[in-house]
Amino acid sequence: MKDNAINTPIDPKQIKGWGIDADPKNDPTYPMRHRMNVGEDPDSKHRPTLQHVDEEVLKSIERPNVSAVFGTPEPPRGLSGLIRRQAYKYSENQYKHWLPMILADRVDMIEGVLDDLAHGHVPNIFAERGAKMDWKYNRSGFFTRLATISLLTAGTIVLFSGKGKNKNKRSKKQRRYQDL
């Protein structure tokens, strides 16, 4: 409650523009205000000029056609594209539509890294994550993140190298057993 002290009361009428857009009849307000019944709308089937479909566009099954204009820059591709095509077979009402899409996004991310490497570009993840800003304005946060990443990396290495050793030990025992 410490903020109460600095929240001094104000006379709203002193604020520039106070009440300038007040409208007692503003109920129902937008978006219901100009509600129009589809059945009574003679132009409800009207469509603008259509954009030529010259590449793959995934379409929601909740509409009968491709919209008059659509975005073109990133058509589906690779494994992520396969997953997306499957996802678009289900309606927006279903998890079978959205959850695979999130999976596809993550697969796409990995494909993006592979694509970078294939083009001879090693992504500078440090720069892409804007870590410079953390270094500049949040030094403690920077070191905390760095320590966390280092610990996780070290832990993963130890875990996997440990598993490797166990496998060797087992195989040595097995060999001894076999020797006996």
Binding site: D43, A68, V69, F70, E92
Partner: peptide, 29 residues
């Protein structure tokens, strides 16, 4: 992105245009 001609744009709902987003019907483009 709004076409200005569809059933929704003509109600002033330019954020709900039906002719600019093929991939989802719940949101305009």
């Amino acid at each position: 992105i709004a076409c200005g001609e569809c059933h929704f744009c003509r109600q002033g709902m330019f954020g709900n245009c039906h002719e600019s987003n093929t991939e989802a019907t719940a949101v305009g483009a």
